[in-house]
Each structure stands twice: as structure tokens, then as C-alpha cells.
Design a protein around this nucleic acid. Structure first.
Length: 418
RNA sequence: GUGGCUAUAGCUCAGCCGGUAGAGCGCUGGAUUGUGGUUCCAGAUGUCGUGGGUUCGAAUCCCACUAGCCACCCCA
């Protein structure tokens, strides 16, 4: 048998209801903040990611699905969508449009990693990018918005972590100093840290090996070495968050894996997820447009929600979201009742009700089915009912049954529906 | 890329020291000619992940492979 390939999966009903739910909530909130949807291709020129995300990052150096097209060009399934959105922004000169460009996307990304809980080779992101301002007020608004999406989804117990990773003015100076400090104590650190002290010293700060912690705490924090502009920017972001009563934790060791981040970075974590506990990652990327070869700057900030992970968390704390719902199951008794029922069902469906007909079931089976499908009501349509012009409408929860005329049917069914 | 665990019915799993399969749930039908959720009865479904080895005999022991899960790494 042919099966879905490693790291990909089928999302079946009723789980799809949870997916639709988070997408609906996201779209609603994004709309209120005046974000508009953008759809970019699922594959791009490889150079876009190499330059945008960074040649040395794990994503680019070992996780991309890259192949050579028939004309010899190198193409890649998108591993993330910020670089493609900025590419589209520049290509279509969206900087010429009035005001900030606020764009959002929902779609699959691809990274060839070893799958585990909350990590898949094809995974879905709900992301937003606000392009055209360096203002810390925008940072706070973006963070507020994603917190709003999670809250309105009903997610409980998530935690916001923020940091500033500096800018091309101050970060290189800090990294050089950090590297020097690490080298002094390198012999006492784990093998990974010794490797990282050369490839990416900032990552050493993020080491989780318990034995290394005491030493790591003695290392300097970037927050103490930001330049004047970055320091003030970060102070403002924090103030704006506090004005909104948004709880956050500053973690000087929060490092994002993508090269384009500068100044504000943030992450939202949730406990129900296992090791891959980050539901949202985001940050500011003021230099990205230039890195892609643009002469016009496009400072911006964005985030992406790991939709798979959000769904995973919600399935734990809101299991009711995945329950199937059916307004009415019609049970026709006999052939004449069947044709009558089909017309009746169409009428009710046109009024927006979710209706199923038990085509070939005896009444007993039909009611059993109504029960299994979670129908809120069952409607018995037999010769008696057709003649009398009143149907027997049964409330499946209470077992109460009452006679209802055709005209008042929809109202009776809708009554009490939340 | 590295490590650990697992692989038996549609699902969750039992099957101890080797004697060629079982439970619960689900599904189908019945106990009622037009009344479900509880109960009772009956039924169907398995190359025991794949390949090899040990043995008179392997779901069970050994090896390899494959797949899944979890973790490292990294990230959404």
C-alpha cells in the first residue's frame, strides 16, 4: 500500500473542524487590524532563501527541499514565508501603495527534518507581516494581535517571551565580545557549545544542557550591550506592551534561527506540546529587503503561528471543537415519505440548516444513526405526518417529541442553537 | 544527521518460560409492524510490519530492513 510520505499527514474530519476554527478566528482578528491576505507560490528560486534566511542557518544548509528544474535553475519548496512575502512586496512595488502594508498568509511550509511531536516536514503557518515602519508601536501592535488570535481561539496557558537581538551597529560588537568570553571557558562547556562558539556564539546562550547553565549565566547578555537606538526601541516596545497589560517575560538568551531578525524578537510557548513547545515565532527584519538586493528599504515585523502546534494544543484544552454537529436527521418511513423528505430537506438546507437524510434505515436505525452523528434533532416523516401536515420533531438530548408544522420547522430547530 | 522505544482486527491493546490468535471499543444484523442514548444475542475482519535465521514447530528467540512515535539538533 502507498502511504503518506514521512513527515506529512492527512488531516481528517473531525480534526479539520479545529483547523477551520483557528483559521476563521485568525482571519477575523487579522481583518480587524487591517491585514489583507497574500498568496505567494509554494516554490521559489533557491537564492531567495539562501540570501533572505541566511546561508549558514540550519534551514538553508540542511533542511530545504531543493531540486534542479529542467532548465537548470535551482528551485526550493518554501521553508518559511517571510522572504517570499518581501520578494512579492518588492517585485510589485507595494512600497508605492499608501500606508503600511499589512499582509497575512495561511499555507504549508516544507522542511526536511526528522519528524516528532509538533514537527512535520510539511507544516502549516498562519503568518503576518507589517511592512513600512520601524516604530516600536508597530512591534507592540503585532504582538498584541497574535496574542489576541490565541486568546480568541481559547488557548489557555501560553507564555510570551521577548528579546532584542540588536542591529548591525551593536550585534557584531557583542558577538565578538561573547566569542572571546566563551573561548576562555570553552573547555568546561558541552561539545555542542564548543562547536557553536565558532559557528554561532549567540546559540551558546540558548544551550539547554543543565551542566552548562551556571557558566552560561556568567556570560554577558546582549540586552546590556545594545546600542542607544536599539535600547530605546526595546524600552518603548516594553512600555507599549505594559500599557496593554500584556504579560511577557524578557529572555536575553532568546535567539532566533533566522539571520534576518534584528531588534525585537519574540516567541510564544505552550506546555501541551512536548519538546517543540513554540507555537509562535516572530521578530523584526529591517534589513531583509536590502539583503534581497533592494535599494528601497522595507523595515517590518512579522510572526508566524505554527498551525499544527496550535491545533495540537487546542485539541487538548478544547476537545469540544472537534465534535461533529448536525442540526437534523430526517427519518423517512417508506417510499412516498422519502421523496417528500428530500424536498423538505432541501428547503431546510436553503435556510442554512445542516440536514442529513437516513435514506434506507428503519426508524430504529435512523434514530440510532441520529445519536451517533450527534444530531440535535430527528424528524420523523411517515404517511401519518404527511397526511396531517405536521411532523414529529424529536429533541435528541431530552427525548421530547412534538408535532411541528412545516412552516415553523426551521424556527423550532434553530431555537436554542448556540 | 544521531539516539531510545514500538510494530498483533478499523481503533486501543493482551498474548508470561516457543505448541500456528484474543479482549474492549467500533462496525453489521437480530431481540420490537413507527422511536435512539442503557441492556441482551449473533456475525464479519488478521500473510501477527517485511525479509532471513534458529527449531520438529516462531506472534513469541536472533539478525537485517522498513515504518511510526518520542527525544537530541533545530525550529512553527
Amino acid at each position: 500500500m502507498i502511504k503518506a510520505i514521512k513527515g506529512t499527514r492527512d488531516i481528517l474530519p473531525p480534526a479539520t473542524k479545529v483547523w477551520n476554527f483557528v483559521e476563521e478566528v485568525s482571519r477575523r482578528v487579522l481583518h480587524c487590524y487591517n491585514y489583507q491576505e497574500i498568496r505567494t507560490p509554494i516554490f521559489e528560486e533557491t537564492a531567495l532563501f539562501a540570501r533572505g534566511v541566511g546561508e549558514e542557518t540550519d534551514i538553508v544548509s540542511k533542511e530545504m527541499y531543493t531540486w534542479q528544474d529542467r532548465d537548470g535553475s535551482s528551485l526550493t519548496l518554501r521553508p518559511e514565508n517571510t522572504a517570499p512575502v518581501i520578494r512579492a512586496f518588492l517585485e510589485h512595488r507595494l512600497d508605492q501603495r499608501p500606508g503600511l502594508q499589512k499582509l497575512f498568509y495561511i499555507g504549508p511550509m516544507f522542511r526536511r527534518e526528522r519528524p516528532q511531536k509538533g514537527r512535520y516536514r510539511q507544516f502549516f503557518q498562519i503568518g503576518a507581516e507589517a511592512i513600512g515602519s520601524e516604530s516600536p508601536a508597530l512591534d507592540a501592535e503585532v504582538i498584541e494581535m497574535v496574542v489576541e488570535i490565541l486568546t480568541q481561539s481559547g488557548l489557555q496557558g501560553f507564555q510570551l517571551i521577548i528579546n532584542s537581538v540588536g542591529c548591525p551597529q551593536c550585534r557584531p560588537r557583542f558577538v565578538a565580545m561573547l566569542k572571546e568570553k566563551i573561548e576562555q571557558v570553552a573547555s568546561q562547556l558541552c561539545a555542542d557549545c564548543r562547536r557553536r562558539s565558532v559557528t554561532n556564539p549567540l546559540r551558546v546562550l540558548d544551550c539547554k544542557v543543565p551542566a552548562d547553565q551556571p557558566l552560561i549565566e556568567t556570560l554577558p547578555s546582549i540586552l546590556d550591550h545594545l546600542c542607544q537606538d536599539c535600547r530605546s526601541h526595546f524600552t518603548w516596545v516594553r512600555k507599549f506592551l505594559e500599557d496593554r497589560d500584556i504579560r511577557y517575560q524578557v529572555q536575553g538568551r532568546l535567539v532566533r534561527g533566522l539571520d534576518y531578525y534584528m531588534r525585537t524578537t519574540f516567541e510564544i510557548v505552550h506546555g501541551a506540546l512536548g519538546a517543540q513547545n513554540s507555537v509562535v515565532g516572530g521578530g523584526r527584519y529591517d534589513g531583509l529587503a536590502e539583503a534581497l538586493g533592494s535599494k528601497v528599504p522595507a523595515p517590518g515585523i512579522g510572526f508566524s503561528i505554527g498551525e499544527d502546534r496550535l491545533v495540537l494544543s487546542l485539541e487538548e484544552c478544547r476537545p469540544e471543537l472537534a465534535r461533529q454537529t448536525l442540526d437534523l436527521l430526517v427519518a423517512p418511513l417508506g417510499e412516498s415519505a422519502l421523496s417528500h423528505s428530500t424536498l423538505l430537506a432541501r428547503e431546510l438546507r436553503r435556510q442554512g440548516l445542516c440536514v442529513e437524510i437516513a435514506f434506507d434505515a428503519k426508524l430504529k436505525r435512523a434514530l440510532e444513526l441520529a445519536n451517533k452523528l450527534g444530531a440535535r434533532h430527528a424528524l420523523i416523516v411517515g404517511d401519518n405526518e404527511i397526511q396531517a401536515g405536521v411532523y414529529a420533531l424529536k429533541d435528541m438530548a431530552t427525548g421530547q417529541q412534538l408535532n411541528v408544522t412545516r412552516d415553523s420547522l426551521a424556527d423550532k430547530i434553530l431555537y436554542g442553537k448556540h
